[in-house]
Amino acid sequence: MKVAVLRFPGSNCDQDAFFALTADMGIDAAYVWHEETSIKGFDGVFVPGGFSYGDYLRCGAMASRSNVMQEVVRFAAEGGPVLGACNGFQILCEAGLLPGALLLNEQQKFVCCDVFLKTETRRSVWTAEAADIVRIPIAHGEGRYVVEPDDLKRMEDRAQIAFRYVNASGASDEDSNPNGSVDGIAGVLNEAGNVLGLMPHPERATRSILGGTDGIGILKGFQLVMAK
């Protein structure tokens, strides 16, 4: 198993992702620059967080049209596992791999804290091993997930909601939604379940010295694909 950690101008969670995968998960990984036109030889893709292209125009807009992302779209269509965190989630939405979009947080503030997520489905490799209640860091200014009501209904019917923001006891209340996302949605899957995008950072929760290890259950998706 070898995971491609994508790098765009302005990515800044790429090294965290590489470290978490290699040092904490024992997964082989390599950086792939956005100009690359092939991801041959890779079995999975991690689209890291940051501020690709300075968040110009819209977060993830330019990155989603880059050479390497065109390959990732093809890779995902063939069932390859793709995980996007934070700016990576924005990029996957902009690329059309996931429904919806991310807007400026409702309360207009950059939020940087630990949150709790409820794992809403087990049908994907990304959620199969996740804790029921995941404690995980977020750090974003534009994480308000929006999607048309009809699309939301369809996503619910097809179990595409991966994670919702909840409080420590697993209940959703007004204070547990950090950015005003519709229905408290923190992460979504594509229809096939091989692509996950989420605003929280699983790569920042892979050892106890970082404050928690609940990211491991999500990153395990890369290993589960290989075990299949």
């Binding site: 125009l57 807009a61 049209r65 979009a101």
Partner: peptide
Amino acid sequence: EKLLANPVI
């Protein structure tokens, strides 16, 4: 349609 606007939002 291809870049400057996102039809979702």
